[in-house]
Design a protein around this nucleic acid. Sequence first.
DNA 1: TTGCATGCCTTGAACCAATAGGTATGATAC
DNA 2: GTATCATACCTATTGGTTCAAGGCATGCAA
Lengths: 115, 115
Amino acid sequence: MAATNPSFMNGVPELLVLRLLRNGEMYGYQLVQAIRDETGEVVNLGEGVVYPVLHALEKAGAIIGHRRAVNGRSRIYYALSPAGVSRLTELTDLWARVTGAVQQVLVGDTHAGLV
Amino acid sequence: MAATNPSFMNGVPELLVLRLLRNGEMYGYQLVQAIRDETGEVVNLGEGVVYPVLHALEKAGAIIGHRRAVNGRSRIYYALSPAGVSRLTELTDLWARVTGAVQQVLVGDTHAGLV
DNA sequence: TTGCATGCCTTGAACCAATAGGTATGATAC
DNA sequence: GTATCATACCTATTGGTTCAAGGCATGCAA
């Protein structure tokens, strides 16, 4: 029973970060705000969530960070690698499968449909 | 990185159990199979997941268990309580909000729509 | 010079699914 | 008759992930 974010968040931060980076490189602080804004404040990830995700993704080779100075500020811009693209595809697919399966139960379609 | 079930499972077991019980009382072993069958085997929860969920829900007053003997077998049938019904409503709502928000990012609708 | 927004980061606790066990009964197969 | 399987219940432990709560530094405005 989290006060800030509802449950159902497992794996969502990674998916959202990858998806947003597909539109072009972004830096951590910017991702935090983009996620808050684009979800209409339904999902509000703290920096303590986003930065570890970025570091894990970079370590896994899914994204690549470049330090750059903008207006005297130091930012780390992250870009998707080919591995990151396929990871995104994989996660998007998984997301569709799981949400679809749950939705099926919620709607109450009592049939074991093939594929 | 779970080997069996994909990620995105946070809170899902509780939601599925509550939803299935809305159709009428069921027992643990039966719930395990129903979840596997009705999701087309996309979601496959072990008994080690379902039983703790049932115990937690009963402790919270969301469901009520009755031990009953059927064919010489002892089963504990669980039924939704009024508290369980509102918990189900709450979770269903949350599920819709979160999946909707994520979907919005996945599709790439860059607008902060109200409500 | 005080405060605030930006921008990066880590640590600790808490939660929850998943694994891997364990017990016991009835039915079926050898 | 006894070994095995499906049924039916249960718990302890592990591991992964989110989250809160900090800390550090810079630029700009009051």
